[in-house]
């Protein structure tokens, strides 16, 4: 009886679609991310009022204030906790659903 069950499981998994998916082969076949997914930061410079609350709550020192009372982000240090987006009174900082943050150019990771 046990052998029969094993055979059934083995045959079934032979014809089943694989659980794993290829990584980023085609945009349509990518694993969809959820709505609340926390990805790369986006920053609306015009909406920013320069309260600098985000600088004070950021746990990993991503955010620095600039001379004109706005902020700049070093995304390579970001741990995607979303606290800055949560505390921003004007919703100038948002987290997109883009999860591929890596680039070949390090300056591309500085967001102003």
């Amino acid at each position: 009886m046990k052998f029969g069950k094993m055979l059934r499981d083995a045959l079934r998994s032979l014809f089943r679609k694989p659980v794993t998916v290829e990584y980023l082969t085609k945009p349509g076949r990518m694993v969809p991310v959820s709505e609340r997914f926390r990805g790369r930061l986006t920053y609306d410079r015009d909406a920013c009022i320069g309260c600098l609350l985000c600088v004070r709550v950021c746990p990993s020192g991503v955010i620095a204030s600039t001379e004109d009372m706005k902020v700049a982000f070093n995304i390579s240090r970001c741990i995607l906790c979303g606290q800055c987006a949560e505390i921003c009174p004007k919703e100038a900082i948002k987290l997109s659903t883009q999860f591929e943050i890596i680039t070949g150019n390090k300056n591309g990771l500085i967001l102003k």
Binding site: V33, S34, E35, R36, R38, C81, G82
Partner: peptide, 27 residues
């Protein structure tokens, strides 16, 4: 993996959920 997908749907991250905040939860 199914549980981790569920975490992503509820909190936005698979492992570090960042669910708690002072006085409540975030999501």
């Amino acid at each position: 993996e199914k549980i981790l997908d569920l975490f992503e749907k509820i909190t936005g991250n698979r492992i570090h959920h960042a669910m708690n905040t002072i006085g409540g939860v975030r999501w």
